[in-house]
Amino acid sequence: MLENFSFRTIVEYLPLFGQGLVTTVWLSAISFVGALLVGIALCAMNLQRGWLFRAPAKAYIDAVRATPLLAQLYFLYFGLPRLGFVLPELVVGILALSLNSGAYIAEIIRAGILSIPRGQVEASVASGMTYTQRMRLVVLPQAFKVTIPPLLGQAIVLVKDSALLSLISVAELTRAGQLLASDRFMPAEGFLTIAAFYLLLYYGLKALAGLSGRWLGTAGART
């Protein structure tokens, strides 16, 4: 049983966990911004009429969705040096997370745009708006509201996925737990502590999603 559970050791390692937590937060934040950019670009390509842009975007999205992040991470980690890019593990990790989440975000944005009722688009077409005006004035403002909650869901997934970067020795939260587990043979202390930290992030983001849901729910039709 866990009769030897040592809170003292956890306290001793707290600065390490703190650093790991901070690293996890900022590398997730950067990766999420990167993923948004990748997602918007992919979605824009995917909404084109011609297959020239659509086909590569679709292929990319399918390839990412049908393979595990860990394999993608190793692909970049072991593969990039072969192409002459010797990058720090942290950069490889952020790249992998951005490229992976970007594919999912592209689908979220696309679903948001497609969720706008056809009649809305017809009404704006009938009033003589151009494609850009329609997107800017009618479709995107409504799609924005629909996409915020799933985007926050994707942010939660991304934070959890970032744990895999510990496997290529990025000094983030899970890595801190691994260090405690292996240095002092205290896996319970190490992994339960980081689990608690991840839950902190999870409930934080979840609360944010709830807030945004309520805020967005009232922003459109004030009744």
Partner: peptide
């Protein structure tokens, strides 16, 4: 289209 008004069965007002 700017010269033609179109009224839909389902109104299609912009909800936002």
């Amino acid at each position: 289209r700017t010269e033609i008004g179109f009224v839909f069965q389902s109104f299609n007002l912009y909800p936002h």
